[in-house]
Design a protein around this nucleic acid. Structure first.
Lengths: 344, 344
DNA sequence: ATATAATGTGCATTCGTTTGCTCACTGTAC
DNA sequence: GTACAGTGAGCAAACGAATGCACATTATAT
């Protein structure tokens, strides 16, 4: 048993190193490094010999050492508010894919606090040796993005933006999104519309409200606008309260599909029929929106394009820190399904 | 402009180093390191002076260098099949939390291929400098876990297991889960039950089928058992086909809630009522299962406990590679909601 | 045969920390 | 005044790979 212990101990520390390969192949350590990285200066015979030796010993280069030497980690951080949220989850899946093919790994940073100056947190971001950061949790009062930017850490603001910051931004045209939703509801004949939005300090929320107001010709009355997290629960409870009130609205605009589904659930639970008694429109068009139980009418944003482009922009920024700052704004479109209709 | 360029260039490379702090504080670089790590040998005056200098310069230790020296990265990999899946997403959220407080970051590894010997992939896992790996994608024919284990890389098998491998396992009692589901359906009077399961090579699928068969007193007929991915789509299409067949079953057991919801959607879409026309039971009890639109009866597994314990076991294993191998098996329970009833 | 270029390797340094060991200094006991 | 702890700090060697430069060796030109 103690023998096995020792064996194990040895095993865990006897990962073959480049110098072991060098010894086995009868060349120098630097030649091993070059051969394995396909340096043209190494003859093909030597290269082959080194390859074999490496294979034999199961040699895999130590990435930490390489990172130190190359002064980069090929790891990027992706900040999201909440992993357990279908929108972020779709976004992450596509970002992951894009980063992967570019040779980057990513580590998830969950940031429920919207990047408000939490010194410890900021320190962690700085010392975490990311090559860059995709931030999807920016709020208008986030201070971390600027601090990180000043430190020279490549960042891209994805999904949500902060005005006046000279960093790459990838987002949807949220003003147009607000317009689209409002125009759809108005054209169906709705006049009393409520909005269950995300946190007020969020660019998406503000832009969409602006867009909606433009179409309505007036500002949504404050008692018809609700702010809260992007959760099923938020949609559910706000809708419940609305329907219990004196004069419920005839339509509800939700900040995203997850909220919208919460709204639908609450309405149904209270015996209301969607869309006969009340119309509901969402944003995003996540997979779930098309499920038969919901068939949610929603303003589609090109989540995949945003995910992919965010990853690309970050990589570009990492590889060329001084390139021009970009701002991608993707068009949105209306996906009509079965949760909106003319009011009774 | 070109001035700013230069400034930027400098900025990105002039992160303060410990030697800069040393210079500023008038001490040696090693003293800086010790002072910042609260080494008792450093006097409090010196410590304070170093602290101030570090603060002043905005010094943050380079984690890559530290990792190289300490021979560890404080990063663990978590392998999941699919990010965009509510079950994994919940699991990840809790693992993340647990790892975070223990000082570990995690990087996500998406592994749709079930860890079948993909040499490139394995290489990537090996050289990625993870301190350990939580694997939720093991199948009975995965060979990577054994290879990784042999290499001395700490791993824990989470959710799914592989028999005969001397590694830590954290899972639910899936035989009991199968029994529970079958017993519930049988006690309601169901005799013709179909099962829409995950991939056949999965321990969870096999154990649950075993449990169900034990209760039924016979094996489910092959034409009533379907294997497929853990997706809404799989539940949807299999259910559709079942209901279009000659004699549809009176109840469907799904391998997880996501599939079950696909089943419900398909049934409703075809005009069947759940549970009046057909009963549906899921596994997991994800948040969504309780949404009013589904109210899914399901066998609950303690996802949170599994997530937390997997993280803990991995950390223990990292910190004590030679400790005894553990096998946690969590009990499951029946959550009765509104998708099961007696057959007509 | 000698100079010259082209080719392939190796030596030694570097990346930025942590840490074993040494050493200078102070204060106490003899 | 010498010896001896007990402090506090510095020197220098890791950690494991990448790479600039020097240096062999061979092929080519003269």
């Amino acid at each position: 048993m103690s023998e096995q212990r020792d064996a194990l101990k040895e095993t865990s520390s006897n990962r073959a190193l480049s110098r072991d390969v060098a010894l086995a192949a009868g060349v120098s350590q630097s030649t091993v490094s070059r051969a394995l990285r396909d340096d043209p200066r190494i003859s093909s015979t030597t290269r082959e010999r080194v390859r074999q030796a490496a294979e034999q010993l199961g040699y895999v280069p130590n990435r930490v050492a390489r990172n130190l030497r190359e002064r980069r980690s090929r790891v990027v951080g992706v900040m999201v508010q909440d992993i357990d949220n279908a929108f972020y989850t779709q976004l992450l899946a596509d970002m992951h894919q894009e980063l992967l093919v570019a040779g980057y790994a990513f580590t998830l940073i969950v940031d429920p606090l919207h990047l408000r100056s939490d010194v410890t947190r900021l320190r962690n971001l700085l010392d975490a040796s990311f090559d860059g950061l995709i931030i999807t949790t920016a709020t208008l009062d986030s201070d971390a993005p600027e601090a990180l930017h000043r430190r020279g850490i490549p960042i891209v603001l994805s999904v949500r933006s902060i005005p006046g910051l000279e960093v790459d931004i990838v987002e949807s045209d949220n003003v147009a999104a607000g317009q689209l939703a409002a125009r759809h509801l108005v054209s169906l004949g709705h006049r009393d519309i409520a909005a269950i939005m995300g946190p007020e300090v969020t660019s998406t929320t503000q832009h969409r409200i602006v867009g909606a107001n433009q179409v309505l010709g007036h500002s949504l009355p404050p008692e018809r606008v609700f702010n809260g997290p992007y959760s099923h629960e938020s949609g559910h409870s706000h809708c419940r309260r609305l329907l219990q009130g004196d004069r419920p609205p005839t339509a509800i605009m939700a900040a995203n599909d997850v909220i919208a589904i919460g709204v639908i659930d609450a309405a149904r639970q209270m015996g209301y029929s969607v869309p006969d008694d009340i119309s509901v429109i969402g944003f995003d068009d996540i997979h779930m929106a098309s499920w038969h139980s919901f068939r949610l009418t929603t303003v589609r944003q090109d989540t995949k394009a945003i995910a992919v482009q965010s990853a690309r922009r970050l990589i570009e920024r990492i590889e060329d820190p001084d390139g021009p700052v970009t701002h991608d704004k993707y068009p949105v479109s209306l996906t009509m399904r079965a949760t909106t209709a003319a009011p009774k």
